[in-house]
Computed example of a mutant assay.
Amino acid sequence: MTTIAILVGTESGNAQMVAECLEDELGRQGHTVEVIADPDPDSAALESREIVLICTSTHGSGELPDNIIPLYEGLQESRPDLSHIRYGVIALGDQTYTDTFCNAGKLMDRLFGELGAGKVGERLEIDACTQPLPDEEALAWAAEWLEQL
């Protein structure tokens, strides 16, 4: 089985709820899952990770949630080699913000790619307007994502 770190970016708690749901389900399947609710370069410990799932909402007009900014800025500044990591992204957003829909997930996706991490599958973008239960969509996506690892 696999060891997965889920890095959470959240303001209202929806991304945290999705991460915890994934933690429960993937744990039942025999995977080891660690949810990191306030990720920064130290707590994320990316140098020792092989599989990372980024689960983040978008705040305001396309901004990263406050709790994941330290990780993003730390990675931007230090530019570590993440080529040993395979990752996926679950992005939560609101399509009424057409220009910045799921922008935080897109920012994290782009940064991990720039740092050499290998993206597995397509980014899941969940629209709060059409999907009131984001955990259900995330569970279905995660099942397919795991098969690609």
Rank of each mutant, 00 (worst) to 15 (best):
L26I: 02
G60S: 06
Y97S: 13
W141M: 09
D38P: 00
Q16C: 03
S57G: 15
L92D: 05
P80W: 10
A143S: 10
G13M: 07
D81F: 00
W145R: 07
T96S: 15
D109F: 05
N14L: 06
T130R: 06
A142Y: 03
M17T: 11
A138I: 02
E147D: 12
H31N: 10
I6N: 08
W145H: 02
E125Q: 15
E114H: 02
T3K: 15
K119G: 01
I126H: 03
V33T: 05
T56V: 00
D109L: 08
G30Y: 01
S48A: 13
Y87I: 03
D94M: 07
P134W: 02
E25Y: 07
A104K: 09
I51S: 09
V35E: 03
Q76F: 00
F112C: 00
L115W: 06
L146R: 06
A117Y: 00
E136K: 13
R79H: 08
S48F: 07
T32H: 13
T32L: 08
V52Q: 00
E47N: 12
Q131F: 01
Q76W: 00
L64K: 06
E23S: 14
E20Q: 15
A37M: 12
D38I: 02
T2C: 04
F101I: 02
I36E: 04
V35Y: 01
L71I: 09
L82T: 12
D135S: 14
Y72R: 09
S61M: 13
E25R: 09
D109P: 03
I51A: 09
G116D: 05
L82D: 06
E23V: 00
I6G: 04
I126R: 06
I6D: 07
S78Q: 14
F101C: 01
L26R: 05
A45M: 08
D38R: 13
T56H: 05
N67F: 00
E63F: 02
F112W: 03
L46D: 11
M17V: 02
A45C: 08
L53K: 10
D127Q: 11
L124M: 05
A117Q: 06
L92Y: 11
V18Y: 09
C102P: 01
I51R: 15
E34I: 03
E73V: 01
R86Q: 08
R110W: 02
I85V: 10
M17Q: 13
A142G: 04
G62H: 02
E25Q: 12
G105E: 02
Y87F: 15
V52E: 01
L82M: 10
I68G: 04
E25D: 10
